[in-house]
Nucleic acid binder design. Structure first.
Lengths: 225, 225, 225, 225
DNA sequence: GATGAATGAGCATTCATTCAT
DNA sequence: GATGAATGAATGCTCATTCAT
């Protein structure tokens, strides 16, 4: 289900028809161009070049440029959401809200920075795309936001978040810190692990009440890969 | 505060000629459109409409679309930098690094969210703009980054930042949290003061060593691989 | 009456008002630009720059770009015609048709190459200018042609032109040779006198019947200056 | 005779692809418009109309308006040169310099007046076109001039040109007479043969020394058709 | 008389899209 | 399935022209 710009094979459909693979190549190319050039700057000719075919061939798989972009945007957020959901589902029952947030932080960062094209395309262009292309994306985006909302609400309810913090605002700030990482993180100048660790550390102690901080603190759960 | 016609800082933006005001109107309009539509999506006709004149009139003040956009980008980061620098300069000698960071967080957020067009234009498009339009902007941007670098380095040197945090990564995450605020903050659904307070709280306790923070707080857990 | 691009003062109006001089400067500039850039390539801004004023100032003297160009074209051919007519009128009665042609050749060449802007503007653009701008110019042009026609017809009638030559065609060829001189003649690489002498020699012996050619041949009369 | 797509001489212009024919149609149309309207006045929409397609279609074959015009200019002079060269090469060894000049006069005139668009485009616009579009054309043009130079130099060396004539100046005047013919010659008012004959007669006796002139004069060689 | 400021018409060029092959 | 060829709808930019000062 997941569309991946790199070469990682999604478990579900090993052997796809040639047609499906071409379609995928176009989507991947579009995600890449979209993430770099932005909505208005994404030309079909560039997408085609990246996908190694001629521009008119795109119309065999997508009915229009907008249709193609819409799908990229949807996939970007949709894949992100399922990736996060899977990571959270994999946690043992009874995992504390704060630890669940740690897992979410890691999942978001890894997905964004490892498979960045779709995610960054989706992230960077959410404000530039015409409304009528965002109905599916908006739904997913809202759902994705709700997952995080729940995480912070639970943390607040369990007394794992300081009372002077507003869960909604904190959520915005934390997601911003994570989303923005794609803008500056350079894999050659620092491991992904280190940025994950720093983000988790920053968020954990940024959120945790003073007393609570020393009280618990077992160990961060391993999230998904 | 004033955005300069070329690069000369006009200290008093009180009585400017009508011509200068028209030029300013065009710049403001361009910043607005640029922040919403992105580099490739910024049409001169839209800018003109926003500035209440005809598109060709823009050429009386700017030699090309690129020239106009280049100046918006430069002003965005340049104004931000001088705003931050002024705020820091206004602090009394001996202010602790951490407190200086708090001031910087507030300055960045207020500038971004109050005059958001230039800042968001600059922020959102830094990755979409062709390199040859970025020479001035890049210089300012680097200088701006260096101010923040010093802040975090000083905090680390003074023992106000936990040893497990990498100052560079923390800087990226914090600035990301602040930059992204323009994407989600809605002035109608929360005061600017509250977002400033939350950001400061999050950063302060996110950074501060356990001992200093409240006397305990050991170390952030190692998360993933 | 004659408009001259260089500094030669026309005898008639020594002291002209400042206004008239500005108008003249504009005409001269237009002639220059027109001769180099052609009709469509003649921009009022270029004319203005050459005349050392701002483009809108031209409208104080000419009602439109077309009007200005029309006058340049008219002056070009009109001055040429009066110059030729004066040279011919200055010849003593009884001058042979062939000698009159020699005078005409010299007059045409000197006018074209010494005061070249108007003449070359007129010559080069006669084919590029819209018909509705050519009514005055066409009349003058026809009159100019008729002078030459008479010269060749007289030469033919007097037996000074070989019978195998068609006076009309010869006229076209001779005027072509003269007109084209502006395209290649470089004052730094050959005197005006030498080109005049060569042209006269070529035309004289090119036209003259064999017997007559060796029979006479006094000397080419010096025409005007 | 064939105008080549790029610069490769396609000897047999029999069966060209439809694409090549469209390209040729555009070139022909451009030559026509260029010869009538001049460089600055040549609009792609006019060229397109003449070629019976829409203006943007031109970009499928030429990368820019300048590129198209550059090729027209190059083809104009290049075709002229090869046409002249072929005519001269076809002459039997031992043909006198003067007779070779007669052949050249005929070749130039026929090419210019029969395929006038390219030739007149090239001739009329050589002074109006920006330098950077003239590198190829200038080379050909110089080569063309050198052919004529040799002709006149040889004539002078063989004593077939009067000593009072300067070969360079005569060359300029003769070529001018021929080039200008396109400006006034009307096929409906005189045969091409008659203008060729008149030009040859004029040049022959215009150049030939007096003694020689009456001595010989056998027959003007009929050159090409 | 002359200029700064602005406009409207027009042109080169780009690009998504179509269609016959 | 895919492409060469072509088109129509923009969009940046130029330039003659106007007008208030």
């Amino acid at each position: 289900m997941a569309r991946k710009p790199t070469a990682s094979a999604s478990a579900t459909s090993e052997v796809e028809s040639k047609s499906a693979r071409t379609r995928q190549r176009i989507l991947d190319a579009a995600a890449h161009v979209l993430s770099v050039k932005g909505f208005a700057g994404t030309r079909l000719s560039d997408v085609a070049e990246f996908a190694q075919l001629q521009a008119p061939a795109i119309y065999y798989y997508f009915s229009s440029r907008e249709d193609l972009i819409e799908e990229v945007m949807f996939c970007g957020i949709s894949d992100m959401r399922s990736h996060l959901q899977e990571a959270l589902d994999a946690l043992p029952d009874g995992t504390s809200p704060l630890d669940r947030i740690m897992t979410a932080v890691e999942a978001h960062l890894r997905h964004e920075l490892e498979l960045s094209d779709y995610a960054t395309a989706s992230i960077r262009n959410s404000g530039q795309i015409p409304e009528h292309l965002r109905s599916r994306e908006r739904k997913e985006s809202a759902a994705y936001g709700r997952i995080w909302q729940r995480l912070f609400d639970d943390a607040a309810a369990d007394g794992e978040m300081r009372a002077d913090l507003d869960p909604r605002i904190v959520q915005g700030l934390v997601l911003g810190a994570l989303n923005w990482a794609a803008e500056w993180w350079d894999p050659r100048r620092g491991s992904l692990d280190s940025i994950v660790a720093n983000a988790q550390g920053l968020v954990r102690s940024g959120i945790t009440p003073v007393a609570a901080a020393s009280a618990r603190r077992k160990r961060a759960p391993r999230a998904s890969t």
